[in-house]
Amino acid sequence: MNKHRQRKLITMMSVVLMLSLAAGLILYALKQNINLFYTPTQLIEAKVAPTQICRVGGYVKKNSVQFDASGQSVAFIVTDKQRDILVRYHGVLPNLFREGQGVVMTGQLNAEHVFIASDILAKHDEKYMPASVAKALQKIPGASAS
């Protein structure tokens, strides 16, 4: 490679490197804004003002989902496996809403530290398997399908 090309290549690579560094710093500074939701731990520690609307994401705790008599309102616990938050919601749930699965909710904490959700989205994980395999896995202790 001749000198001229070598110099060009080095200049170009350093420009790209510097721009990546700048982009990286910007993204790092905006980390909290880019995060779509708080985990329950972050929400409790951040001491979000009761009226502030925010998003919370986590897993629906097993055996915590309770529908009221009309079937329209639901209460459940959302967890990140460290802290729990009680959630109340009135409305239609997404198809993938089930115990043990992820959810991302918009809403606000009330004075009793209950999260009043106005909107619930289901978050699924990256695992894909046939129903028969999932069933077989559930019979093996220690292996988890969900």
């Binding site: 980390k31 880019i34 995060n35 779509l36 939701f37 708080y38 985990t39 994401g57 991302v104 989205l121 978050k123 699924h124 994980d125 990256e126 695992k127 894909y128 398997m129 046939p130 395999v133």
Partner: peptide
Amino acid sequence: WNTLHQGPSISQLAKPAIAPSM
């Protein structure tokens, strides 16, 4: 970041999180 989109199902290092038939 925290996203609604799930993580990668296929990565070079780990076993794919997707059944072979799929």
